[in-house]
Simulated assay, not measured.
Amino acid sequence: MILNIRIDHKTADINKIEESTRNMDEIFANIQHDHQVQEYVQVKTCNRAEIYMVLDEAPLHYQWGGLVVEKDEKALEHVLKLSCGLESMIIGEDQILGQLKDAHKVSVKKGHCGPVLDNVFTKATHVGQVVRKKTQINQGSVSIGSAAVNLAESVLGDLKCKKVLIIGAGKMGTLVAKALVEKHLKAIVVANRTYDRAVCLAKELGGDAIRFDRLARAISDADVVISATGAPHAILTREKVNVAVPPENLEKMVMVDIANPRDIEEDVEDLGVKLYNIDDLRGIADNNKKKRQSEAKKAEKIVAEELDLLEKSLQHLEVEPIIANIRSQAEIIRLRETEKAYHMLGDMNGKEKVVDHLTKVVVDRVFYNIIHNLKEAAENDDTEVINSAKYLFKNKT
């Protein structure tokens, strides 16, 4: 069975997401201890944490603690919708597709992804691409990064004369940067633990890069701070901000924290700073959702069609070894008998390809119905036919 456990923006705020992510890691460790987890892929973004796993039986007797738990068809439907941006806070955003690809690659590299989840995530990538090609769900779409910029703009007004500090030069920081470029801003500073990355991003923006140890100085006169690092703990505490920022600047400052876990401690707000996080982007997300309802319906129709194909392909996995064995045995016989025919026919004057093609076609036609019926048996869970095929086509050597 395929199991998906997750926490995301649809069922929790950022506090709950942070708390439940730790809880989910503990539950997953327990499942691995109690059950044979054959494959798994972990997905983590700024507003979700998910684990997909393949195991023999449903794990029981766990206190899920607010996590969403879905299996088989529901889990598959969710990952396809996720790849299309239908499950995102910002409907139609493109970043999730890259995040799913990355999660898939990491799992493959570490040896955690097997044939089932490889099929699932390959299909999810395909569906995400098809939906974006056949619908306009991502046309002019905003990302979490640009939503953060829009939020700051809604508070301060035009940002053209404001100094903006971006903390983090990773994927999310880059999205923020791109959104700022579209606003034609010039006073942009990028801070990152890896200075070279900050330099590269700042160069693209026409802004300045600073080393992380100069962060306090950069904060002191910033109008807007947008933080999106992958740090495991807060990098801006109340004490650090209080020391770095002059009192007269605190109440003018806007900070937007789009990291998970958060980069900025909540009590920074006590200093008078206007502090926002992922939860505060929901209003922008709701407006975006209304604009894309008709495109979302088209996307859901594509998902439904592709889900049916995915389920069939997963059912076919059971008989793939039998089919591979049939093809392997047939190919050995075909090559052997074709070689005999060449010797008997003598000089073929370059027409060997004709004979080779003919034998391939004959073999394919002979086994076409057998393979088709085997796949159909898998779809119908016909174990009698499958077991008979295993016996009939097993190697005798």
Rank of each mutant, 00 (worst) to 15 (best):
K171F: 00
G128T: 10
K74Q: 12
L165D: 06
L165I: 11
K351I: 00
K71V: 05
E73H: 05
V176A: 04
R22P: 00
Q136T: 10
Q293R: 08
C84W: 05
M53V: 06
Q38I: 10
N288Q: 12
K171D: 15
N287S: 11
C161K: 14
V120E: 12
A378L: 02
E295M: 09
N387H: 09
D382S: 05
L60Y: 02
L317M: 11
M1N: 08
A49K: 10
V37C: 01
L86V: 06
V254I: 12
A29D: 14
A49R: 07
H372R: 14
L55C: 11
I96K: 07
R214G: 10
A75S: 14
V106Y: 10
R48G: 04
P261V: 07
I31Q: 04
Q329M: 14
E337G: 11
N380R: 15
E87R: 03
I17N: 08
Y342I: 06
I96F: 09
D267I: 04
D267W: 01
I322S: 09
S313W: 00
K396N: 13
E77S: 09
I167Q: 04
V108N: 09
L392Y: 08
D118R: 08
A187L: 12
D221Q: 14
Q38K: 15
R238W: 01
D280H: 15
V199T: 04
R238F: 07
A12I: 04
K394W: 07
D308I: 10
N373Y: 07
L117G: 12
I137W: 03
N288W: 02
T174A: 10
C84F: 03
K74C: 00
K163W: 05
G98C: 01
E318K: 07
Y52V: 11
E311P: 00
H104A: 07
I210D: 08
A216F: 01
D56C: 03
A187D: 15
K81A: 08
C161H: 15
T338N: 01
V190G: 06
E182G: 13
V303A: 06
I137D: 02
I326K: 01
K105P: 00
H126N: 12
E320R: 06
I17M: 14
L100D: 04
A198C: 06
V131I: 13
F393M: 08
A169K: 02
G350R: 04
I188M: 09
I278P: 03
L97H: 05
K81M: 11
N369L: 12
K133T: 15
E300V: 03
K178G: 06
L335K: 15
S227I: 03
V37K: 00
I166S: 02
F28Y: 12
V69G: 09
I322A: 09
L236E: 01
T125F: 13
A187I: 02
I166G: 05
Q42C: 12
G207A: 06
W64Y: 15
E331A: 13
G114L: 10
N277T: 13
V106L: 14
V363G: 06
S220K: 07
F393A: 08
D364R: 11
S388M: 13
L175N: 04
A378T: 04
T21H: 05
D196Q: 14
V43H: 10
M255S: 02
Q99Y: 05
G145F: 07
L374N: 09
M53L: 15
Q63F: 11
T11M: 08
K186M: 01
I91R: 06
A58C: 00
A169N: 01
A324V: 07
Y342P: 02
K133R: 15
H35K: 12
N30F: 01
